[in-house]
Design a protein around this nucleic acid. Structure first.
Lengths: 217, 217
DNA sequence: TAAAATTTTTAGATTTGCCTAAAAATTGCC
DNA sequence: GGCAATTTTTAGGCAAATCTAAAAATTTTA
């Protein structure tokens, strides 16, 4: 079995790999809130466990077994998030931190039983797809709200990163997954957006916030 | 917050304290599967955190804050066991090890929300009472089946310790909490028992097994 | 009650996972 | 292409939690 620290490294590399082919020591250090020297240490250890391909000075990639492990951690995390929101009534802004702990609970049958109880959900409360036992998950093709042509109606499908700050902000603006959004204006001055929500309410979103809102047609 | 190791020491001392006033280094080492030297180390650390009263060579007792912490860990453990059996369908023989991990997940609202969802159960699947938020729980006065007078009918109320071996054995003999038991014979030779279950089936129990079966009137 | 047996503590070492400071390698720029 | 800036690694150290072996204290027993 793998330690909590090891699992967090693998998961971190997995997430950063979604945006770039290989992951740098500094990027991983920032993501995991540690120092670069600690990253080098751990990469060497995970290398010997064949979870990743690590070439000093050239960044790191997950091996196929590392990728499999990452998907299983992501699966655990997202199923627990679904449970926390839909079964015991947490708000979506609170569950990320709890799921970070729950995802490391080890037991061969636990996640399968949880999945069955929850009804094998395909998406977590933030719109991210939940991998199945074999690591397969729904293909998603979200784009950021800042990239949508004004006048086109889209669906709020997911958030880019689940920081509590962001979730609280969305809560405050009363934006929920599934809302219909139409960009009415995009101002060149500060790139802020005027958005019509569900054909009723017009709200203002900063560029930074718009970037975090992922939508689909 | 306290580490997993610290919580396990506090919980171990709590359980051993149920049977004796003070807990010896050796007893705790056996209970936690560590060496006596490690126990001494940790007791000194927990002493400085005021969780216990430790007098070298004279055993240890939980302080009132240690006792409060122990009860909250026991509460978490038993609520998770209840969830695993009654919500997602585990057998009672499998859940102890999983709950050992889940009990260390830290979050101010998690256990309260879980408790509400479960309907504030008073007993876990092994018949042990679940402490409430203030550490209060149902008073139980169980006795071992080996101490019951032959001919007296009693209810199977709890098991003394939840080892997987014991739970599997009870599973095999088809004994469940709530069964009505009557000791028909107790043999002097090996102290084994002949027991009538639910007025229908007669089974044989070894002394060691009978000791683990806790009953009430 | 003194020697033997047992229990407990101390001393010193190990592993994991992290740190800081300095050295080495790579990249960026004129 | 060479110097400066940046990134990454190495070296050495630290804290938590464990271990073994030896010393000290307590308890048992003859």
């Amino acid at each position: 079995m793998y330690s909590v620290a090891e699992e967090n490294y693998i998961k971190g590399i997995y997430h950063l790999q979604q945006k770039a082919k290989t992951v740098s020591t500094n990027a991983l250090a920032a993501h995991l809130n540690t120092k670069p020297a600690s990253i080098t240490d751990m990469l060497k250890r995970l290398q010997t466990k064949k979870l990743l391909d690590y070439e000093p000075y050239y960044g790191v990639r997950l091996s196929s077994s590392g990728n499999k492990l990452a998907l299983s951690i992501v699966r655990r995390h997202r199923l627990w998030e679904y449970f926390l929101v839909n079964t015991i009534g947490f708000g979506w802004e609170e569950v990320h931190e709890i799921a970070e702990q729950l995802e490391h609970v080890q037991h061969p049958a636990l996640i399968e039983k949880l999945d069955v109880f929850l009804g094998r959900p395909a998406f977590d409360p933030h719109g991210d797809p939940i991998p199945d036992m074999d690591g397969k998950m729904a293909l998603v093709d979200y784009e950021s709200l800042t990239e949508v042509k004004p006048g086109k109606e889209v669906l709020f499908a997911a958030v880019d990163m689940q920081t509590a700050d962001l979730m609280n902000m969305l809560q405050y603006k009363n934006l929920k997954l599934g809302d219909r959004l139409m960009v009415e204006e995009r101002f060149d001055f500060d790139q802020s957006l005027e958005v019509l929500v569900n054909k009723k309410k017009k709200i203002t979103l900063s560029y930074k916030l718009g970037r975090m809102i992922l939508v689909k047609k």
